[in-house]
Design a protein around this nucleic acid. Structure first.
Lengths: 96, 96
DNA sequence: TTCAAATGTCGGCGTTCGCTGACAATATAG
DNA sequence: CTATATTGTCAGCGAACGCCGACATTTGAA
């Protein structure tokens, strides 16, 4: 599974949590976070802190790997190329 | 590369940034973050927000993948006998 | 449908974020 | 070595965090 946005991350965690038969309250307790944090995170909270995220992944036995995209894992007809800089610039401008 | 902690994440980004010949200021600007954020993040800041982290990975052309640790990412050398139908069924079920 | 569990939402609170600007401390040239 | 670029640190600021408690809504099983 490829992760590009906070929402994708949240959905992956949600699926896995359910697959393991855990409730939000149970998982939150395991990772030492509030239940409300999990609620927001699974729904794509973009400003969640990575420490908790990594703990969640660990608690769900999910492995996180990073690799340069010029060494493709799977020959992709894959993700739509996005100009991140343009996006960010737009976002910044929007905030002013 | 496997990621378990915020520090590992920071170090991976740092290595990649240097490999691409970017300065902290340059990368921070691309991401739309302050330079001080990058400084702290590369040094393992555990409460950095994932939104910025994902933007950093994207800006460095790094792919992030998640998978259960009981489904190894790369088949060890030598063909592993696999029941393709079982795998497909499991995947299908998983998506529901 | 009924009812309990699970999930989502709200307000308030103290803490920490990430930002800017300025300065100190290292690396890297020349 | 000196000079420059890069990286690291500090203080101050507004904004958002993640927490808790309580309540509303949705889900799932009897």
């Amino acid at each position: 599974m490829q992760i590009r946005t906070p929402l994708e991350l949240g959905l992956v965690i949600r699926d896995r949590r359910r697959k393991l038969g855990l409730t939000q309250a149970e998982l939150a307790r395991k990772i030492g976070a509030g239940r409300q944090w999990l609620v927001a995170f699974e729904r794509g909270k973009s400003r969640a802190e990575i420490g908790l995220v990594l703990r969640a992944l660990s608690a769900l036995d999910l492995l996180l790997t990073i690799h340069p995209d010029d060494l493709p894992l799977e020959p992709s007809d894959g993700p739509i190329p996005v100009d991140i800089h343009a996006v960010v610039d737009a976002a910044k401008k929007a905030r002013e």
